[in-house]
Design a binder for these strands. Structure first.
Length: 360
DNA sequence: TCTGGGGTCCTAGGACCC
DNA sequence: TCTGGGGTCCTAGGACCC
Protein backbone atom coordinates (compact mmCIF):
# COMPACT_ATOMS: atom_id res chain seq x y z
CA UNK A 1 0.00 0.00 0.00
CA UNK A 2 2.82 2.43 0.99
CA UNK A 3 2.30 6.06 2.01
CA UNK A 4 -0.97 7.78 1.25
CA UNK A 5 -2.95 10.71 2.58
CA UNK A 6 -5.97 9.75 4.63
CA UNK A 7 -9.17 11.74 5.14
CA UNK A 8 -9.14 10.90 8.82
CA UNK A 9 -6.30 9.61 10.91
CA UNK A 10 -6.94 7.38 13.89
CA UNK A 11 -4.27 7.10 16.55
CA UNK A 12 -4.64 3.78 18.35
CA UNK A 13 -2.97 3.55 21.74
CA UNK A 14 -3.18 0.46 23.94
CA UNK A 15 -3.99 1.21 27.56
CA UNK A 16 -1.31 0.36 30.18
CA UNK A 17 0.03 -2.05 27.59
CA UNK A 18 2.77 -3.96 29.43
CA UNK A 19 0.71 -4.31 32.61
CA UNK A 20 -2.34 -5.33 30.57
CA UNK A 21 -0.41 -8.11 28.84
CA UNK A 22 0.77 -9.41 32.20
CA UNK A 23 -2.77 -9.38 33.63
CA UNK A 24 -4.02 -11.29 30.58
CA UNK A 25 -1.81 -14.24 31.32
CA UNK A 26 -2.26 -13.98 35.09
CA UNK A 27 -5.95 -13.06 35.51
CA UNK A 28 -5.65 -13.18 39.29
CA UNK A 29 -3.74 -9.88 39.04
CA UNK A 30 -6.79 -8.02 37.72
CA UNK A 31 -7.67 -5.08 39.94
CA UNK A 32 -4.32 -5.15 41.75
CA UNK A 33 -1.53 -2.61 41.38
CA UNK A 34 0.87 -4.08 38.83
CA UNK A 35 4.26 -2.60 38.00
CA UNK A 36 6.48 -3.76 35.14
CA UNK A 37 10.12 -2.75 35.14
CA UNK A 38 13.71 -3.94 35.01
CA UNK A 39 14.15 -7.49 36.19
CA UNK A 40 11.22 -7.16 38.57
CA UNK A 41 13.50 -6.69 41.56
CA UNK A 42 12.86 -3.41 43.39
CA UNK A 43 16.21 -3.58 45.14
CA UNK A 44 18.01 -3.14 41.80
CA UNK A 45 18.79 0.03 39.84
CA UNK A 46 15.95 0.12 37.34
CA UNK A 47 12.87 2.14 36.48
CA UNK A 48 9.16 1.54 35.94
CA UNK A 49 8.25 0.78 32.34
CA UNK A 50 4.49 0.63 32.87
CA UNK A 51 2.24 0.85 35.90
CA UNK A 52 -1.36 -0.34 35.93
CA UNK A 53 -4.06 2.22 36.69
CA UNK A 54 -4.34 0.81 40.22
CA UNK A 55 -0.62 1.46 40.74
CA UNK A 56 -0.90 4.93 39.20
CA UNK A 57 -3.51 5.83 41.80
CA UNK A 58 -0.82 5.20 44.41
CA UNK A 59 1.48 7.67 42.69
CA UNK A 60 3.54 5.27 40.61
CA UNK A 61 4.42 6.40 37.09
CA UNK A 62 6.67 5.32 34.25
CA UNK A 63 10.27 6.41 34.51
CA UNK A 64 10.17 6.32 38.29
CA UNK A 65 12.93 4.35 40.04
CA UNK A 66 11.63 0.89 40.89
CA UNK A 67 12.85 1.26 44.44
CA UNK A 68 10.67 4.32 44.97
CA UNK A 69 7.70 2.71 43.23
CA UNK A 70 7.90 -0.24 45.58
CA UNK A 71 7.79 2.11 48.54
CA UNK A 72 4.75 3.97 47.20
CA UNK A 73 2.92 0.76 46.38
CA UNK A 74 4.11 -1.83 48.89
CA UNK A 75 1.39 -4.31 47.92
CA UNK A 76 2.05 -4.03 44.19
CA UNK A 77 3.05 -6.99 42.08
CA UNK A 78 6.36 -6.12 40.44
CA UNK A 79 7.18 -8.02 37.28
CA UNK A 80 10.21 -8.14 34.97
CA UNK A 81 10.04 -6.71 31.46
CA UNK A 82 9.29 -9.58 29.06
CA UNK A 83 10.16 -8.28 25.59
CA UNK A 84 9.15 -11.42 23.74
CA UNK A 85 5.67 -11.44 25.24
CA UNK A 86 5.01 -7.77 24.40
CA UNK A 87 6.35 -8.14 20.88
CA UNK A 88 4.02 -11.05 20.28
CA UNK A 89 1.01 -9.20 21.73
CA UNK A 90 1.90 -6.10 19.71
CA UNK A 91 2.08 -8.04 16.47
CA UNK A 92 -1.29 -9.61 17.21
CA UNK A 93 -2.79 -6.13 17.66
CA UNK A 94 -1.21 -4.73 14.50
CA UNK A 95 -2.35 -7.74 12.47
CA UNK A 96 -5.86 -7.21 13.81
CA UNK A 97 -5.80 -3.59 12.62
CA UNK A 98 -4.55 -4.60 9.18
CA UNK A 99 -7.30 -7.23 9.09
CA UNK A 100 -9.82 -4.38 9.15
CA UNK A 101 -8.53 -3.32 5.75
CA UNK A 102 -6.94 -0.12 7.04
CA UNK A 103 -3.50 1.32 6.36
CA UNK A 104 -1.44 0.89 9.53
CA UNK A 105 1.66 2.87 10.46
CA UNK A 106 3.25 1.25 13.50
CA UNK A 107 4.77 3.72 15.96
CA UNK A 108 5.89 1.36 18.67
CA UNK A 109 4.82 -1.65 20.69
CA UNK A 110 1.56 -0.07 21.76
CA UNK A 111 0.77 2.60 19.18
CA UNK A 112 -0.21 2.98 15.55
CA UNK A 113 -1.71 5.45 13.12
CA UNK A 114 -4.55 4.10 11.04
CA UNK A 115 -5.88 5.78 7.90
CA UNK A 116 -9.62 6.00 7.35
CA UNK A 117 -11.35 7.43 4.30
CA UNK A 118 -15.01 6.81 5.12
CA UNK A 119 -17.63 9.23 6.40
CA UNK A 120 -17.85 8.08 9.99
CA UNK A 121 -14.48 8.02 11.77
CA UNK A 122 -16.16 7.64 15.16
CA UNK A 123 -17.74 4.40 14.06
CA UNK A 124 -14.39 3.29 12.66
CA UNK A 125 -12.73 4.04 15.99
CA UNK A 126 -15.31 1.95 17.83
CA UNK A 127 -14.78 -0.86 15.33
CA UNK A 128 -11.07 -0.73 16.03
CA UNK A 129 -11.62 -0.90 19.80
CA UNK A 130 -14.05 -3.83 19.50
CA UNK A 131 -11.84 -5.76 17.10
CA UNK A 132 -8.71 -5.34 19.21
CA UNK A 133 -10.55 -6.30 22.40
CA UNK A 134 -12.11 -9.35 20.82
CA UNK A 135 -8.90 -10.59 19.20
CA UNK A 136 -6.45 -9.84 21.99
CA UNK A 137 -8.35 -9.02 25.19
CA UNK A 138 -6.64 -5.60 25.27
CA UNK A 139 -8.33 -2.21 25.61
CA UNK A 140 -7.22 0.77 23.59
CA UNK A 141 -7.94 4.48 23.30
CA UNK A 142 -8.40 6.06 19.89
CA UNK A 143 -7.70 9.65 18.90
CA UNK A 144 -9.41 10.88 15.75
CA UNK A 145 -7.88 13.72 13.78
CA UNK A 146 -7.61 15.32 10.37
CA UNK A 147 -3.86 14.72 10.53
CA UNK A 148 -1.38 12.71 12.58
CA UNK A 149 -0.48 15.48 15.01
CA UNK A 150 -4.09 16.10 15.99
CA UNK A 151 -4.93 12.39 16.15
CA UNK A 152 -1.96 11.73 18.40
CA UNK A 153 -2.82 14.54 20.79
CA UNK A 154 -6.52 13.58 20.76
CA UNK A 155 -5.78 10.17 22.23
CA UNK A 156 -4.76 11.69 25.54
CA UNK A 157 -8.29 13.05 25.96
CA UNK A 158 -9.82 9.67 25.18
CA UNK A 159 -8.02 7.61 27.82
CA UNK A 160 -8.84 5.16 29.12
CA UNK A 161 -10.63 3.05 26.55
CA UNK A 162 -12.40 6.02 24.96
CA UNK A 163 -12.24 8.14 21.83
CA UNK A 164 -11.77 11.86 21.17
CA UNK A 165 -11.99 13.98 18.03
CA UNK A 166 -9.51 16.81 17.44
CA UNK A 167 -9.56 18.69 14.13
CA UNK A 168 -8.93 22.17 12.75
CA UNK A 169 -12.46 23.01 13.90
CA UNK A 170 -11.91 22.52 17.65
CA UNK A 171 -8.11 22.80 17.82
CA UNK A 172 -7.92 26.18 19.54
CA UNK A 173 -10.96 25.52 21.69
CA UNK A 174 -9.29 22.37 23.08
CA UNK A 175 -5.60 23.26 22.93
CA UNK A 176 -5.38 27.07 22.67
CA UNK A 177 -4.84 27.87 26.33
CA UNK A 178 -2.72 24.81 27.13
CA UNK A 179 1.05 25.08 27.61
CA UNK A 180 3.23 24.29 24.62
CA UNK A 181 4.78 21.30 26.39
CA UNK A 182 1.55 19.41 25.79
CA UNK A 183 2.30 19.38 22.07
CA UNK A 184 3.78 16.24 20.58
CA UNK A 185 7.43 16.99 20.00
CA UNK A 186 7.77 19.86 22.48
CA UNK A 187 9.62 18.89 25.63
CA UNK A 188 10.96 20.77 28.62
CA UNK A 189 13.90 22.40 26.81
CA UNK A 190 11.95 23.70 23.84
CA UNK A 191 9.05 24.92 25.96
CA UNK A 192 11.53 26.84 28.12
CA UNK A 193 13.11 28.43 25.04
CA UNK A 194 9.67 29.37 23.74
CA UNK A 195 8.83 30.93 27.09
CA UNK A 196 11.85 33.20 26.73
CA UNK A 197 10.18 34.55 23.61
CA UNK A 198 6.96 35.18 25.55
CA UNK A 199 5.32 32.07 24.16
CA UNK A 200 3.56 30.07 26.86
CA UNK A 201 0.46 28.70 25.22
CA UNK A 202 -0.42 26.89 22.03
CA UNK A 203 -2.38 29.91 20.86
CA UNK A 204 0.64 32.16 21.39
CA UNK A 205 2.80 29.71 19.46
CA UNK A 206 0.34 29.82 16.58
CA UNK A 207 0.47 33.62 16.60
CA UNK A 208 4.27 33.76 16.80
CA UNK A 209 6.39 35.15 13.99
CA UNK A 210 7.64 32.26 11.89
CA UNK A 211 10.93 34.03 11.23
CA UNK A 212 11.58 34.37 14.95
CA UNK A 213 11.05 30.63 15.40
CA UNK A 214 13.33 29.83 12.49
CA UNK A 215 16.02 32.10 13.91
CA UNK A 216 15.74 30.39 17.29
CA UNK A 217 15.41 26.76 16.23
CA UNK A 218 16.73 26.50 12.69
CA UNK A 219 14.98 26.12 9.36
CA UNK A 220 13.35 22.76 9.89
CA UNK A 221 12.50 22.78 13.57
CA UNK A 222 11.43 26.42 13.52
CA UNK A 223 8.98 25.78 10.71
CA UNK A 224 7.82 22.59 12.40
CA UNK A 225 6.99 24.37 15.68
CA UNK A 226 5.19 27.16 13.82
CA UNK A 227 2.93 24.57 12.19
CA UNK A 228 2.54 22.68 15.43
CA UNK A 229 0.96 25.70 17.10
CA UNK A 230 -1.87 25.43 14.57
CA UNK A 231 -2.04 21.66 14.88
CA UNK A 232 -0.97 21.43 11.27
CA UNK A 233 0.82 18.33 10.08
CA UNK A 234 0.89 15.46 7.70
CA UNK A 235 -2.09 13.18 7.13
CA UNK A 236 -0.01 10.68 5.23
CA UNK A 237 -0.17 7.25 6.81
CA UNK A 238 2.79 5.14 5.77
CA UNK A 239 2.67 1.39 6.19
CA UNK A 240 6.14 0.83 4.73
CA UNK A 241 7.83 -1.68 7.03
CA UNK A 242 10.16 0.04 9.43
CA UNK A 243 13.87 -0.44 8.88
CA UNK A 244 16.19 0.42 11.74
CA UNK A 245 18.78 3.08 10.98
CA UNK A 246 20.91 2.09 13.92
CA UNK A 247 21.43 -0.51 16.57
CA UNK A 248 22.71 -0.02 20.07
CA UNK A 249 22.97 -1.61 23.46
CA UNK A 250 23.00 0.07 26.78
CA UNK A 251 23.27 -1.29 30.27
CA UNK A 252 23.12 -0.06 33.81
CA UNK A 253 25.58 -1.46 36.29
CA UNK A 254 24.23 -2.34 39.69
CA UNK A 255 27.52 -1.14 41.11
CA UNK A 256 29.58 1.74 39.70
CA UNK A 257 32.58 0.75 37.62
CA UNK A 258 35.77 2.43 38.67
CA UNK A 259 38.74 0.74 37.03
CA UNK A 260 39.68 0.96 33.34
CA UNK A 261 39.84 -2.84 33.26
CA UNK A 262 36.22 -3.14 34.35
CA UNK A 263 35.16 -0.58 31.76
CA UNK A 264 37.04 -2.35 28.99
CA UNK A 265 35.53 -5.72 29.88
CA UNK A 266 32.07 -4.16 29.87
CA UNK A 267 32.70 -2.60 26.46
CA UNK A 268 33.77 -5.94 25.02
CA UNK A 269 30.53 -7.46 26.20
CA UNK A 270 28.31 -4.68 24.85
CA UNK A 271 30.04 -4.55 21.49
CA UNK A 272 29.60 -8.31 21.13
CA UNK A 273 25.87 -7.89 21.75
CA UNK A 274 25.52 -5.09 19.22
CA UNK A 275 27.57 -7.07 16.75
CA UNK A 276 25.18 -9.99 17.08
CA UNK A 277 22.25 -7.64 16.39
CA UNK A 278 23.85 -6.07 13.36
CA UNK A 279 24.85 -9.47 12.02
CA UNK A 280 21.19 -10.45 12.24
CA UNK A 281 20.35 -7.36 10.19
CA UNK A 282 22.93 -8.36 7.60
CA UNK A 283 24.05 -4.80 7.01
CA UNK A 284 27.52 -3.42 7.71
CA UNK A 285 28.26 -0.80 10.32
CA UNK A 286 29.65 2.45 9.01
CA UNK A 287 29.97 4.46 12.17
CA UNK A 288 30.18 3.74 15.87
CA UNK A 289 29.13 5.79 18.82
CA UNK A 290 29.91 5.45 22.47
CA UNK A 291 27.84 6.85 25.26
CA UNK A 292 29.24 6.81 28.77
CA UNK A 293 27.36 7.95 31.81
CA UNK A 294 29.39 9.07 34.73
CA UNK A 295 28.54 9.48 38.37
CA UNK A 296 27.04 11.79 39.32
CA UNK A 297 24.76 11.75 36.31
CA UNK A 298 26.25 13.24 33.24
CA UNK A 299 26.81 11.76 29.84
CA UNK A 300 29.61 11.92 27.35
CA UNK A 301 29.32 10.74 23.78
CA UNK A 302 31.86 10.11 21.07
CA UNK A 303 31.25 8.95 17.55
CA UNK A 304 33.46 8.11 14.64
CA UNK A 305 32.93 7.16 11.04
CA UNK A 306 34.77 3.97 10.28
CA UNK A 307 37.44 3.94 7.56
CA UNK A 308 35.22 1.48 5.71
CA UNK A 309 31.88 -0.20 6.46
CA UNK A 310 32.53 -3.40 8.34
CA UNK A 311 30.88 -6.44 9.86
CA UNK A 312 33.92 -7.52 11.80
CA UNK A 313 33.65 -7.79 15.58
CA UNK A 314 37.35 -7.05 15.93
CA UNK A 315 37.02 -3.81 13.93
CA UNK A 316 34.03 -2.67 15.96
CA UNK A 317 35.67 -3.49 19.25
CA UNK A 318 38.85 -1.63 18.45
CA UNK A 319 36.86 1.38 17.23
CA UNK A 320 34.88 1.49 20.46
CA UNK A 321 37.95 1.06 22.64
CA UNK A 322 39.59 3.95 20.77
CA UNK A 323 36.58 6.13 21.53
CA UNK A 324 36.69 5.09 25.16
CA UNK A 325 40.38 5.95 25.38
CA UNK A 326 39.49 9.38 24.06
CA UNK A 327 37.20 10.06 27.00
CA UNK A 328 38.59 11.37 30.22
CA UNK A 329 39.74 8.69 32.57
CA UNK A 330 39.45 8.46 36.32
CA UNK A 331 35.73 8.96 36.52
CA UNK A 332 33.24 6.53 37.90
CA UNK A 333 31.12 5.01 35.20
CA UNK A 334 27.54 4.75 36.28
CA UNK A 335 25.73 3.63 33.17
CA UNK A 336 27.31 2.67 29.98
CA UNK A 337 26.10 2.16 26.49
CA UNK A 338 27.44 1.40 23.08
CA UNK A 339 25.69 2.49 20.01
CA UNK A 340 26.56 1.16 16.57
CA UNK A 341 25.02 3.11 13.74
CA UNK A 342 24.36 1.35 10.52
CA UNK A 343 24.20 2.40 6.90
CA UNK A 344 21.12 4.44 6.14
CA UNK A 345 18.65 2.46 4.12
CA UNK A 346 17.89 3.68 0.63
CA UNK A 347 15.04 6.07 0.05
CA UNK A 348 13.20 8.18 2.57
CA UNK A 349 13.71 11.80 1.62
CA UNK A 350 14.63 13.56 4.88
CA UNK A 351 12.48 16.53 3.78
CA UNK A 352 9.44 14.28 3.88
CA UNK A 353 10.07 12.89 7.29
CA UNK A 354 8.24 14.02 10.36
CA UNK A 355 10.87 15.34 12.79
CA UNK A 356 9.49 13.46 15.76
CA UNK A 357 9.58 9.75 15.19
CA UNK A 358 10.60 7.94 18.32
CA UNK A 359 10.15 4.24 17.79
CA UNK A 360 10.65 1.13 19.79
C1' DT B 1 14.01 8.82 45.01
C1' DC B 2 17.85 9.15 42.17
C1' DT B 3 17.10 8.71 37.73
C1' DG B 4 16.24 2.40 31.81
C1' DG B 5 17.06 1.09 27.29
C1' DG B 6 15.73 1.40 22.78
C1' DG B 7 15.49 4.54 19.10
C1' DT B 8 15.13 9.06 15.49
C1' DC B 9 16.25 13.47 13.72
C1' DC B 10 18.29 18.17 13.76
C1' DT B 11 21.89 21.77 14.28
C1' DA B 12 26.33 24.03 14.93
C1' DG B 13 30.77 24.44 13.75
C1' DG B 14 35.17 22.95 11.88
C1' DA B 15 37.72 20.81 8.02
C1' DC B 16 38.42 20.72 3.48
C1' DC B 17 37.91 21.59 -1.46
C1' DC B 18 37.42 24.51 -5.51
C1' DT C 1 48.88 41.86 1.00
C1' DC C 2 45.17 39.85 2.70
C1' DT C 3 41.88 36.62 2.95
C1' DG C 4 36.33 35.51 -1.41
C1' DG C 5 32.41 32.51 -1.01
C1' DG C 6 30.03 28.36 -1.79
C1' DG C 7 29.49 23.56 -1.06
C1' DT C 8 29.99 19.12 1.28
C1' DC C 9 31.40 16.06 4.79
C1' DC C 10 32.17 14.93 9.50
C1' DT C 11 31.75 15.03 14.58
C1' DA C 12 29.66 16.22 18.84
C1' DG C 13 25.89 17.03 21.15
C1' DG C 14 20.98 18.22 21.98
C1' DA C 15 16.22 17.13 22.07
C1' DC C 16 12.51 14.26 21.78
C1' DC C 17 9.67 9.92 21.80
C1' DC C 18 7.94 5.22 23.64
Amino acid sequence: MSPRAARHVLHVDLDQFLAAVEVLRRPELAGRPVIVGGRGDPTERAVVSTASYEARELGVGSGMPLRLAARKAPDAVILPVDHAAYTEASEHVMDTLRGLGMVVEVLGWDEAFVGHDGDDPRAAARRVQEAVLEATGLHCSVGIGDNKVRAKIATGFGKPAGTFVLTAENWFEVMGERPTIELWGVGSKVSARLRRHGIDTVRQLAAADRDVLVAEFGPRMGAWYADLGHGRGSAVVDDTPWVARGRGRETTFQRNLVSPQEVEAALHELVAQVHADTEAEGRPVFRVALKVRYAPFFTRTRSRKLPAPTRSLADLTSAILALAADLESGREVRLLGVRAEMVMPDGGDPQERTPVRGRI
